[in-house]
Structure formats: structure tokens, C-alpha cells
């Protein structure tokens, strides 16, 4: 009996440690990012770093302005949301409300397949299919630009937008829809005027999640965006925050390397803000 009690107490401690592991990891990640990211910002100067428009890390007189990366990430994410979300919400409506069960089950398998495809595969297809077509279509010297990145990101965020929106649409109480139908609205009018507004906060959550996905994607963007540190423009080769870190990491040293950690810190802060917004949206929905 006594031995059992000791084992019970030991296991309680073990499980407690496992439980608090997530918190420990978040703290460790934050600590490492802050301690390796802050020194370079101090040396470069926070204004020059955040609002400088030139990134020339390997020049004789190096300049470390990351505004081009910040703006590219913001524009790219915004573009991906602008294209991806309407498609995603319409697809979610199809999945949730389609009259044919078989069609929606086949379609949801396709969406699952889509979410399982690794990002480098999207990057590869973007590189071989989208980039040359963008070049030909708009008569550009090079098709690897912000526009191609937006297309690829819009496709990549679809699975998460669709699945969260679909859950939100299905969570709308049937009474709402039945009341609307009883008042003489058609099925389609009910979906667009009653169901979607009622599922608003869930759809908003899917948009915020999509923003997080697009902002954090590195490999696919690296393969299609051209990777030059330009100020963003739709048909110019650009570098995102994520790809700025990834592209110079392997050969960087000194202040340049530290500046890359600072970029990661900026990206991390962006993602934390988005998480906070997401939490806020979800919590308001629960109320």
C-alpha cells in the first residue's frame, strides 16, 4: 500500500512536469530569440533597423534596414488573404451545405490531401508552373516575384481557412436557419444572410489563422519570390521576413548573423500579436 502511494506521488510529479513543458518551451524559445536578437538591434539602432529601406549585409559599408522584408511579408500575406479567403469561405459553404453528400465527402478528401502536401512541393510546382506563366502572361523578364508568391500562399492557406470556416458554419444553430426558411427565404439566401453572419467570428478566426500561416511560410516563398531585397512591388523580386532569415543563414557571420536573429525576433513578435488577436476572437465567440 505504501509503495503504491509513493508511485502515485512520483507519477503526479512526472505528469505535472510534462504538463508545464509547453510553458517552459515558450519561455526558452523567447529567451533565446531575445538574447540573440536584441544585441544587433542595439548596434544598428532600432529606427535604422525597422525603417531602413536598404538591406546590404555583405556590402563594404553594410546597411541593415528590414523595412523591405516587413512590407513584403505584409503585402504578400494581405494578397494571399484577399484571394484565398473568398475562395476558402465559398468552399466551406459548399462542404457544409452541399445537397450531395458524396460530392462533399470527395471534396473534403481533396482538401485533406491539399493540407498534407509539404510546402516544398507547393514551392516546386510554383517554380515550374506558376513562375514561367506569370512571366509570359505579364511580359516580365523574370516571373519570380511578389505576385507568384501571393498565388502560391493563397493556395497554401486554403485548407486551414476552409476547415475552420466549415466548423464555424456547422456550429450555427439549426433554429436560426429553420426560422429564416420558415419566413420564406430560400436556402441560398439563408446561407448568405443568416448562416454566414452568425458564423462571423469563426470565419474571422480562420482569416487570422491564414494570416499566421502566410506570414510564417518560408520554403515555398523562397522558391517563387525571387529572393532579392527590394522594396515590395507586385512584379518585383522580393524577400519576406522568413526568407530573409533562411537565405543568408548558411554563410552569415558577425553582425550580419546577429541581424538575422533580430529579423527572426521581429517575425516572432508579429506571430505573437496574431496569436493574441486569434485568442481574442475565439474568446469573444465563446461568450
Amino acid at each position: 500500500m505504501k509503495k503504491n502511494k509513493i508511485v502515485d506521488i512520483a507519477m503526479r510529479w512526472l505528469f505535472t512536469v510534462c504538463g508545464f513543458l509547453s510553458i517552459i518551451f515558450v519561455i526558452v524559445i523567447t529567451a533565446f530569440l531575445v538574447s540573440s536578437g536584441v544585441p544587433a538591434i542595439g548596434e544598428i539602432g532600432i529606427r535604422e533597423f525597422l525603417f531602413g529601406t536598404t538591406w546590404a549585409s555583405t556590402a563594404k559599408n553594410p546597411e541593415y534596414g528590414i523595412l523591405p522584408f516587413i512590407l513584403s511579408s505584409v503585402y504578400g500575406t494581405f494578397g494571399a488573404i484577399l484571394i484565398g479567403v473568398p475562395f476558402g469561405v465559398l468552399c466551406a459553404v459548399f462542404l457544409a451545405k452541399s445537397s450531395s453528400r458524396k460530392a462533399s465527402s470527395v471534396f473534403s478528401s481533396v482538401i485533406e490531401l491539399m493540407s498534407g502536401i509539404p510546402s516544398v512541393v507547393y514551392g516546386l510546382v510554383g517554380m515550374i508552373v506558376i513562375v514561367p506563366n506569370v512571366r509570359a502572361l505579364f511580359g516580365l523578364p523574370d516571373g519570380a516575384n511578389l505576385f507568384s508568391a501571393i498565388i502560391v500562399l493563397a493556395i497554401m492557406i486554403l485548407p486551414s481557412v476552409i476547415s475552420i470556416s466549415q466548423t464555424a458554419i456547422q456550429a450555427v444553430p439549426h433554429e436560426y436557419e429553420e426560422a429564416s426558411l420558415a419566413l420564406g427565404a430560400t436556402k441560398t439566401e439563408t446561407i448568405f444572410k443568416v448562416t454566414l453572419p452568425a458564423a462571423k467570428s469563426g470565419i474571422l478566426a480562420s482569416i487570422v489563422l491564414g494570416i499566421g500561416r502566410a506570414l510564417g511560410e518560408a520554403m515555398a516563398v523562397m522558391m517563387v519570390a525571387g529572393n532579392v531585397a527590394n522594396m515590395p512591388s507586385l512584379f518585383k523580386s522580393v524577400r519576406f521576413l522568413t526568407t530573409a532569415v533562411a537565405s543568408e543563414m548558411s554563410y552569415s557571420s558577425g553582425l550580419q548573423r546577429q541581424a538575422l536573429f533580430s529579423i527572426a525576433l521581429v517575425l516572432f513578435i508579429f506571430i505573437l500579436l496574431i496569436n493574441i488577436i486569434l485568442n481574442f476572437v475565439v474568446k469573444r465567440e465563446r461568450k
Partner: peptide, 15 residues
């Protein structure tokens, strides 16, 4: 904390 971990981009995990 778990949700935060789930939201961190993989490039940051790499770093």
C-alpha cells in the same frame, strides 16, 4: 502556451 507553440512558424523553430 500550447497554442502559441502551435502558431510559431517552422523557420523560427529551425533557428
Amino acid at each position: 502556451a500550447t497554442e502559441t507553440l502551435a502558431g510559431i512558424p517552422s523557420i523560427i523553430y529551425g533557428l
